[in-house]
Design a protein around this nucleic acid. Structure first.
Lengths: 201, 201
DNA sequence: ATGTAGAGAATTGCCGACAATCTGACGGTG
DNA sequence: CACCGTCAGATTGTCGGCAATTCTCTACAT
């Protein structure tokens, strides 16, 4: 519900109402909320209730830095550990993204993009790292409703993916790490550029 | 209780017994457990209960890689953002560690060492990153009861801290990141060396 | 018009109890 | 003797209710 925007950041969740709506008890709901608090999706203020986490601009930039660090590390590991079928899968995803981009199927593109990054993290073979990356991405989801990229930015992103894939394919850990880190930070810049048009705070 | 070893990794926690011992209801205990599960300290198996997380050798190595990535990123940020009082604090901690080491006060040394790393993470100014680092360190705590380092290893660690502090002091982000990452990975190697003596899988 | 105190309503914190599930032992059967 | 179904005990999953705190709206004073 949080990720799909059914409840908005900053919104306060009424335990009784929500438990009735989901047809579960308040106890079960509260247990789930305690878990979601630790993942960063919810904020719990004692005696005041649970709110959907507000992600400020500062928070978002921090999450980008975190993502960059994790993605770099995972890419380095992936360059050393990636299996042929791993590489094939990445290649497929990359082509699907290119197709989606040229066909203007943006929703599809975003899905594949997410899958591509997840596949890199998985290829790294470090579960805690992948898990943390996933949390950061989910947190970023809360920042602002998906800000669409311009086609030109999309092409740049695609190019970066190709470079990353190439570095991993030849098992060049250092290059893969550099490209991966830069990819996230450039993504951050693209997000900022896209926001330039109309937004305060 | 987990971090202090009052309950051991792999141990199953009886909800009723523990709630009675802590003089709280099972519901409150369960809420806390759901939060601790997300931090990686507990593992919850449906219908079977909550266990203290077992950290295998593979898990521990993964956590070291994660720590290294986070510490590198934070050190880079710290090199750009550290204030004079931040640096002073780090300097103090470093001296306290040297004193503790030469006086063989190992418990004190470990405490200061933890503080030093935490201070670096704080100096980075990235809360989600610092939080993740803390989780990784706690997870590593579960790996094995504190394996003491040899005095020679201790000296090496101290030297690395000095190098890191120097790089941060002159705001050399690249150098700080490199030293920081290497410091964690060398710490990993020292852990492995110390374990060499007597341990199977 | 603004601010403040108070009472009632709404909401969260906490608890004990019942239902569902799992564990382990017992005894029967091939 | 090994294997399997059954059953009692123990443990977790879920629930509704009460107490404590917070929120809100009204009435009143400045």
């Amino acid at each position: 519900m949080i990720l799909q925007g059914e409840v908005l950041p900053g919104e306060r969740l009424n335990e009784l109402a929500l438990s009735r709506r989901l047809d579960i008890s308040r106890a079960s709901l509260r247990e789930a909320a305690r878990g979601l608090e630790q993942t960063g999706l919810l904020e719990i203020i004692p005696n005041r209730g649970v709110l959907v986490r507000q992600v400020s601009m500062k928070d978002a930039l921090d999450l980008y830095d975190l993502r960059a660090a994790l993605f770099r590390a995972a890419a380095r590991l992936a360059a050393r550990r990636a299996t042929p079928q791993c590489l094939l899968r990445l290649q497929q995803l990359n082509e699907q993204m290119r197709d989606a981009a040229s066909a203007q199927r943006f929703a599809d593109y975003y899905g594949r993009n997410l899958e591509f990054h997840t596949a890199i993290m998985a290829a790294g073979g470090n579960a805690p790292m992948a898990r943390t990356y996933d949390q950061a991405v989910k947190g970023l989801h809360l920042f602002r409703r998906r800000s669409l990229l311009h086609p030109a930015q999309l092409d740049l992103s695609l190019r970066e993916h190709e470079d990353l894939l190439a570095a991993i394919s030849i098992h060049d850990a250092a290059a893969a790490g550099d490209v991966a880190e830069r990819h996230i930070m450039l993504g951050r810049d693209r997000m900022l550029d896209t926001l330039e048009g109309g937004m305060p705070a």
